[in-house]
Amino acid sequence: MSERLQQAIATLETIILGKPGQLRLAVACLLARGHLLIEDVPGVGKTTLAHALAQVFGLAWQRVQFTSDLLPADIIGVSVFDRNTQQFHFRKGPLFTQLLLADEVNRASPKTQSALLEAMEERQVSTDLTTYRLPDPFFVVATQNPREQAGTYALPESQLDRFLMRIELGYPDAAHERTLLREGERRDLLPQLAPVLDAEHLLALQTAVRGQHVSDALLDYVQSLIAHTRAHDDIRVGLSPRAGQGLLRAAQAWAAICGRHAVLPDDVQAVFAAVAGHRLERRDAQDAADGLRLASRVVETVPVPA
């Protein structure tokens, strides 16, 4: 199983060039049953990453471009009246898939956003007295463009908390940029990509991640990290208990990716910025990068117990 996972990651690396860290974080997020928020300018390969993940993990996927006039029904689905049967009949929206790419999620109205985010949290959708379970695995990759302000609704903190991780892709370095320029559109490679895993494998992996050993010493460390964010003077709100759980699960997933059976402080540190970055906010300044900086400062400050 672990070999398959390594193979999947290796395959992804052939598509997304020069981003091994972000790639692994995305996979860790998937394995930890969390949802991923990618925040970056357009054209750095956000969609390609989502698509490649779906392809390599053998998942059915849907892409929804969020716009200001998108309605909740547009993603959840609608009940339509069937003339033949004289009955209402629920037509599932694009939400009912294994991997949903919610592109530019901050462009949609808060109403639509919250419909999506609620579905993410509950992993089910309720309409007309009927509850529809979403498929399992269910993984949302949302993207937003932080530079674009006009006509957007930035996700509020309460909604950001629903994403296990937020990552930034950033520009490729010179060598990878050269490869990109030479080889052309990466997305074209995707259809030729054979899936390494399938949904069942992924579920097994997700279960295995939960079983990763967590020692008391590690919990001490995780707790002191969380406590530090809550006691820190510069931080407006510390990490929530949900964030703490997510941090631990993400670290478990990271340990699994690294081929370990026990979670080490290294694993916690590796995922901490991605998990905590969008949840921490400075008291004074308002800048997305601030959260990341705060998170890395927390990691650099809190001692790892001997």
Binding site: L264, P265, D266, V268, Q269, E300, V302, P303, V304, A306
Partner: peptide
């Protein structure tokens, strides 16, 4: 800690917040 102290003698002290593998 004593292992860390040994490496510290050659300028490789473990940072308080440094994880073991790092």
């Amino acid at each position: 800690q004593s292992l860390g102290a040994k490496y510290a003698r050659v300028g490789l002290a473990r940072g308080a917040a440094e994880a073991p593998l790092a």
